[in-house]
């Protein structure tokens, strides 16, 4: 396959960026999207040009490092698939492909397709944990967890923290990301104890980091590579309401 790529190039955080055109030649349909970019980059290096910088690590759809907007869609056209798991057999010979970083107010560009997503870490640091000390935990079977609850918790916990939800949202909101963590823990007895405090701290952090609000576009759910559902945002809102009515904040 031969393709024409339009790739966002930006030297650094405060530098201007623009789309540059590249040819990707002799691409096999069995290649992953990132392997296609590897080929392009090898060509650029040989010509003495700087390769396209992009984030990636596990290349199996679990670490959440890869982060590209392909033809306007975070992670590209295939449902529930990260860029690294997207394969070229989903494109056609002669296609033009636009590749951009995860643009969002809270994700400043570092270089080319690489953005700074540390804001998500700070939302987690605000309260995305159960305050369990190391050691002294009761036997794992001491508290039973109904299978259905465990399953819902796991559905939420599958979030890989890639930030596609933020990139897809017209408001640049991190609501789905935050909701997934809140819902994961609120569904388990172990997480219930700190639930009220957690939801307040995390939503505060979310606002402070410059993420926008949710106005029900559901774009986040549409692009989430792990299929995290917007029902969890409802759960987040419910947990938030509960925290306002049942506990005093300290």
């Amino acid at each position: 396959m031969n393709l024409t790529l339009y790739v966002w190039r930006q030297k650094g955080p405060d530098k201007p960026g623009r789309l540059e055109e590249y040819e990707a030649k002799g691409i096999s349909p069995d290649m992953s999207f990132l392997e296609m970019l590897d080929v392009v980059n090898e060509g650029l290096i040989k010509k003495g040009e700087e390769p396209i910088a992009f984030d990636h690590d596990c290349r199996e759809g679990i670490c959440g490092t890869c982060s590209q907007v392909i033809n306007g869609i975070p992670h590209g056209p295939q449902e529930k698939t990260t860029v690294c798991q997207l394969h070229m057999r989903h494109f056609r010979d002669g296609d033009a492909i636009y590749i951009e970083p995860f643009h969002a107010k809270a994700f400043p560009v570092i270089k080319d397709l690489i953005v700074d997503r540390s804001a998500l870490d700070r939302v987690m640091q605000a309260g995305g944990f159960v305050s369990a000390h190391t050691g002294g935990a009761p036997d794992a079977n001491a508290v039973l967890v109904p299978k259905s609850y465990a399953n819902v918790a796991m559905d939420a916990a599958e979030c890989i923290g890639c930030g596609a939800c933020v990139a897809a949202c017209p408001n640049g909101s991190a609501m789905l990301f935050t909701a997934a963590k809140v819902a994961h823990l609120a569904n388990l007895p172990q997480g219930k104890v700190g639930a009220a405090r957690r939801v307040c701290m995390m939503t505060d952090a979310m606002m402070n980091e410059g993420f926008g609000n949710c106005s029900n576009h559901y774009e986040c759910q549409a692009v989430c590579p792990k299929g995290i559902r917007v029902q969890f945002i409802a759960k987040l809102n419910r947990e938030f309401m509960k925290s306002q009515t049942t506990t005093r904040r300290d």
């Binding site: 944990f129 159960v130 369990a132 190391t134 050691g135 935990a137 009761p138 036997d139 794992a140 079977n141 508290v143 039973l144 967890v145 109904p146 299978k147 465990a150 918790a153 796991m154 916990a157 994961h184 823990l185 388990l188 172990q190 997480g191």
Partner: peptide, 22 residues
């Protein structure tokens, strides 16, 4: 064994059976 206890306490959603056991 302590590891499993620790992880459950942190909220790791291990697989469970219908009675709620691991």
């Amino acid at each position: 064994n302590n590891i499993i206890d620790q992880c459950v306490a942190q909220g790791v959603p291990f697989a469970r059976d219908y009675a709620g056991y691991l």
